[in-house]
């Protein structure tokens, strides 16, 4: 693999994760339990889409096939998508969505804090913009975890089940393959395996405040680095890519 191919791969992983999170959160549009939350979730969805776009622009700039960011988003198949499995998990009830976002948001703040020092100016720039946004996402999701956990018997039960359920997709956040390793060692990317301890500490603190407990199982599922997904991504792409694939000349 050349340096450019490696950087392309690295940018696709981050970009795809944001695009799919953005898509999932966008599905809440007009369906949240109150108008205010509806707008909050779609605002956050748009932040993810913006970050995804920034990553895919960087990816496109080193793509030997000269694909545009739109080509990358709308013309790759499931096996060529590299988003974290966590991102594609269904919205479920509100607790499921909040648990999924929270586990990612804690990670995301840590990740972008490190990426600020990237040797690649564009990536450092994405981190500068992204950090402000993901800090807000963290605030939003962490407060909801506490509100639901320390709320009623039913909300406590739902958010605990949701955290337990999403837990198996969190190991993947800290997974490093050869590409990640080389990109991290060159000072461009982040060694995410080093973020795990801080992540677990922060997650534990919020869960404790929420009167929730850390999941006691070690089930884990990964695969996104080689494009192996859960059954959900195919459905997302089928809907998300329908229009540009059916009408290739369509203009916004």
């Amino acid at each position: 693999m050349t340096d450019k191919e490696r950087l392309l791969q690295y940018c696709l992983r981050q970009g795809d994760t944001h695009i799919i999170f953005g898509y999932r959160l966008g599905e809440w549009c007009s369906k949240a339990h109150i108008l205010e939350e509806d707008i909050a979730l779609t605002n956050i969805a748009l932040d993810h889409m913006g970050l995804g776009n920034a990553w895919l622009e960087r990816a496109a700039s080193v793509d030997s096939e000269k694909r545009s960011p739109d080509d990358l988003a709308y013309r790759r198949n499931e096996r060529e998508y590299y988003n974290l499995l966590l991102a594609e998990q269904p919205n479920g009830n509100y607790a499921n969505t909040i648990a999924r976002q929270f586990l990612f948001d804690v990670y995301s703040v840590l990740y972008y804090s490190e990426l600020l020092n990237s040797a690649d100016d564009t990536l450092a720039g994405i981190a500068g913009k992204g950090l402000k946004e993901v800090r807000y996402h963290y605030k939003h999701s962490a407060q909801w975890v506490v509100r639901l956990g320390d709320g009623t018997v039913e909300s406590h039960k739902k958010i605990q089940e949701a955290i337990d359920d999403m837990w198996r997709f969190t190991e993947e956040l800290f997974e490093m393959d050869e590409t990640d390793d080389i990109i991290a060692k060159s000072g461009v990317g982040v060694d995410v395996s080093g973020l795990k301890e801080a992540w677990k500490t922060q997650v534990s603190e919020v869960l404790e405040k929420a009167t929730l407990s850390l999941p006691d199982h070690n089930l884990s599922r990964t695969g996104s680095k080689t494009g192996v997904h859960t059954e959900h991504l195919g459905h997302i792409l089928a809907e998300m890519q329908y229009l540009p694939r059916a009408y290739p000349d369509a203009q916004w």
Partner: peptide, 17 residues
């Protein structure tokens, strides 16, 4: 105006709207 159940949520909802 906005709806919220506590102070933090009120600031966030105001920010978002």
């Amino acid at each position: 105006s906005i709806h919220a159940t506590d102070k933090e949520m009120a600031i966030q909802n105001a920010r978002d709207l």
